[in-house]
C-alpha cells in the first residue's frame, strides 16, 4: 500500500508530468484562461489517463514487448518498435469510446467534459505517461496508480495556473509579455515551488 501511495506522491508532486517533464503544455497554456474550463480539462485528463495507462500496459506486456508473444508460441518476435503507433491508436480509440459512453450514460457530464475529450488525444501527457510506464517497468497495479497520479498532477498544475492567471488580470503587464509570455513565467514560478517537494518519500 505504502508503495502505491509513494508512486502517487511521486507523480503528483515530485515528478509532476507538466511542471517537471513539460508534457501537455499546449492544452495547458490555451485552456488555463478560465478556472471552470481548466477544472473540466483536468478531470477529463485524470479520467482518460487512468483508463489508457493500464490498457497500454496490457498491450505492451502481452503483444509488443520482447518475448511477449510467447503465449502464442512466437516468443522470438519483438514488436516494441510498434509502440508509438499502437499506443497513439489505443489512446485515440479509448477517447472516442469514453466520449460515446459518456454521451449515452451521463449526458450532463458529457456536456461539461465533451469538448475537451478530442483535445486529449493529442495531449502529450497521455502518450508520455504510457511511454514512461514502459520505460520504468511498472506492473499493472503500479501503472494504474501512476496513470491516476499523473492525471492528478496535471489537474493540480492547470487549476493553479488558471487561478493565478485570473488574478493577473488586475495587474499591469507589459503589452508584449501578456498572455503566453506571462503564463510561461508564472509556470516557472509554480514549477519552482514544486521543486520544494523533491526528496519527499514515505
Amino acid at each position: 500500500m505504502q508503495h502505491y501511495i509513494n508512486i502517487i506522491i511521486n507523480s503528483v508532486f515530485i515528478e509532476n508530468i507538466l511542471l517537471i517533464y513539460f508534457l501537455g503544455m499546449c492544452s495547458f497554456l490555451s485552456i488555463s484562461k478560465k478556472v471552470e474550463t481548466s477544472i473540466g480539462l483536468g478531470l477529463a485528463v485524470i479520467f482518460v489517463l487512468s483508463i489508457t495507462a493500464p490498457a497500454n500496459w496490457a498491450i505492451n506486456e502481452y503483444l509488443l514487448a520482447e518475448g511477449a508473444l510467447s503465449w502464442a508460441g512466437l516468443g522470438h518476435i519483438n514488436l516494441d518498435f510498434l509502440q508509438f503507433i499502437v499506443f497513439i491508436s489505443v489512446i485515440a480509440a479509448m477517447v472516442q469510446l469514453v466520449e460515446m459512453l459518456m454521451d449515452r450514460f451521463s449526458p450532463a457530464l458529457y456536456v461539461n467534459l465533451g469538448i475537451f475529450l478530442p483535445l486529449i488525444t493529442v495531449n502529450c501527457s497521455i502518450l508520455g505517461t504510457s511511454l514512461f510506464l514502459v520505460e520504468r517497468d511498472y506492473n499493472l497495479a503500479e501503472s494504474t496508480v501512476f496513470g491516476f497520479g499523473s492525471g492528478l498532477g496535471f489537474f493540480l498544475a492547470i487549476v493553479s495556473l488558471a487561478t493565478v492567471r485570473k488574478r493577473m488580470r488586475y495587474s499591469d503587464v507589459p503589452s508584449s509579455l501578456r498572455g503566453v509570455g506571462m503564463a510561461m513565467l508564472l509556470t516557472g514560478l509554480i514549477s519552482m515551488a514544486f521543486l520544494g517537494f523533491s526528496g519527499i518519500s514515505l
Binding site: 508584449s176 509570455g181 503564463a183 513565467l185 516557472g188
Partner: peptide
C-alpha cells in the same frame, strides 16, 4: 538545468520576440 529555468527562458524569449 532544472525545469523552471526552461520556463523562464522561454517566457523571456517569447517576450523579446513579441516585443
Amino acid at each position: 538545468i532544472l525545469s523552471p529555468g526552461a520556463f523562464f527562458i522561454l517566457g523571456l524569449i517569447v517576450w523579446a520576440h513579441r516585443a
